[in-house]
Design a binder for these strands. Structure first.
Lengths: 206, 206, 206, 206
DNA sequence: AATGAATGAGGGTTCATTCAT
DNA sequence: CATGAATGAACCCTCATTCAT
């Protein structure tokens, strides 16, 4: 662990270089050599701060996961309206995944031999599932959502929808308009759980 | 291309060995040597049938994609009822992805340098999106689904939901009951597009 | 393990190249690269036959130890006379160690992390000690050697003498005449155990 | 060369840390980093006092060799009796080698590229050989030892015996009782040169 | 067609040494 | 003097591919 300012700067440079390379080139382009070059330091310096390639990978994933956690803690009380909250949640969710999924997906499969990292990824996903689950449970309790839906299963499915759309749009570069996507995801989500209280949809489909 | 029976058998053995290794060990375990061993043939024989490692990879992906295409062609006219058709589609979709996604996901990211393969994967996805899109358009035309939804965007989003749930359940081994999942996915799907004609849901929520 | 003739030849070439390098350059000069070069094969070929640098080292040590064992099995019944047998034993011992000690000594200390190899070396030494011990016990039983000497301790000490002289002479290149050395070692050995029956020394020192 | 007290202390700490590491871990564990750590100083400080790794190695060897020289100068006139003197010499010899051989043996082979160090080791050995040689010559002159033995060859051989026994006992950890070993070495040594004047052995073996 | 030996560029890591603070 | 970051050559090993049999 670096004790001097210079050391910390170098370490940070390596971490962010690592993340950039991971996002742009994938795991196969992620090597101590390329990372060191991108960080503007010499080859051996890499090993001053990281025990191994995997060590940096873990560190990057930890940082990304940390951001996800932090992003998820942003106060959800932006609106009274349930639908508006869903829109907000989806927008944030989508953007958070846009950044994180590039890295997290790589780890999901690529990181053989490092069970710990895989679990970190699963924990992030679980966090989102749990939040969705609790939100749905609250809506059901308030009589605002279809009470016959299993909260966990529903949260998994709708979370999966948003995550995968983020992947399709940001990683696979499917050319979609972000606002339209957020709008549709939110409407689909709301309709899927038969959300009431949405302006203009109050009456259902009589 | 092999002309003799023996040749064809050897080639097939290599392909299915390659697929098994890909599904079980991922890209990192996929090497000419391991594949040859798994196929029970000698080391150099690999290059009798494939120009390179990527050549086999392409071949395997082509096979998997072919199965997806084939599975998707199964007559959708199993039921008159729109909801029952959705249930059936989701069940088949889920299972088809269960097999295919193991391989296709790897390719999505891992196969740098082979744009052709990436496109193959995108084509498979596009096929499903197009089918969902057309189905939705038909339902909208018949007045059975929310006409304000963009068919393509909706098909992408709901397809994404099913695909990602398949991934979570089969690859990440989230312990879920397949029947319950199919049931929920179908209900969510139906509700999301405000499907009418579903027995017992006809009246909406007056 | 090589199945073809060519393979066996290459493997043997690597082993003997490895041994030569060990004898001439020591452990520090012993690298897959130098060995492969000395054997006239390419770099990677080394790993066709040996899992690692240590694997070849083990193999070489095993071969050297094997030769030592073989040399030690040469019939000791070359003469009825105990002294002549000692002379013969010392001559053979000296020559065997001349070859082996170059390699075995390196291993004794250098091979960190490979306890198995160290034990192999100790076993070779033990073999010689045991043989010396048994020989002395026989002489003592026949009333031909000082019965008050501890056979094992004596065998260790006298074996140590011969081994170390071999080292000094052959490895450190102390310029000594081999015949004189054998003669003195034998006389010192015989006198040390108060061997009787030596022609011309029968009467002791009255 | 350090001028301040603190400087001298740091230098000494490095030297004794170096020696300890050499004795316990061998040459492979002997690095500027490990030595600096063991001495409790920072990484770069090493090069304040030593030009290179080899520089410290030389310094350590010089110190060890110096101790050997010093130990050898201890007055040998502790007893009139020749046999008692041999016993005493062997005991001191054994203990001196116990300490020194750990370091000296490493150098004998490991220190490629540093002929100077090798010679230092050989000089130490030569010192002991010369002393043994002279001792034997004196005994022969006094009619107390077999006059037909070549003094140098005999000194080499018997010195080799003691040195190698020390190695076997202290480095290879052969479990032997030190007193018994000294006793046997002395008896073997005395008998080997047909030493007269040993109480109770005066008469030879008539 | 099948075999398995041969190849060597490339990847991860270590470590003796230098240098700026 | 002391510190610890920076350096890069050297080392061990892997593996996709070629080639002689």
């Amino acid at each position: 662990m670096p004790t001097t300012t210079r050391g910390r700067r170098t370490r940070d440079a390596l971490i962010s270089a690592g993340r950039e390379i991971l996002e742009q080139c994938g795991l196969s382009g992620f090597s101590p050599e390329t990372v060191a070059q991108a960080a503007g330091v010499s080859y051996g310096t890499f090993y001053t701060y990281f025990e191994s390639k995997e060590d940096l990978l873990r560190t990057v994933v930890r940082a990304v996961a940390g951001e996800m956690f932090a992003a998820s803690l942003v106060s959800p009380a932006t609106a009274d309206d349930a639908y508006t909250r869903i829109v907000e949640a989806n927008r944030r969710y989508l953007r958070a995944w846009a950044e994180a999924s590039k890295v997290l997906r790589l780890v999901e499969q690529g990181a053989d031999s490092d069970e710990a990292m895989r679990e970190m990824v699963l924990e992030v996903r679980e966090l989102y599932v749990t939040r969705g689950e609790e939100g749905l449970r609250r809506l059901q309790g308030a009589g605002l959502a279809d009470p016959s839906l299993d909260p966990r299963l529903t949260a998994i499915a709708l979370g999966a929808m948003v995550e995968q759309v983020a992947h399709v749009m940001y990683s696979l570069k499917e050319p979609l308009d972000e606002n339209e996507v957020v709008d549709h995801l939110s409407r689909l989500w709301a309709a899927a759980i038969s959300l009431r209280g949405r302006p203009g949809h109050e009456g259902g489909d009589t």
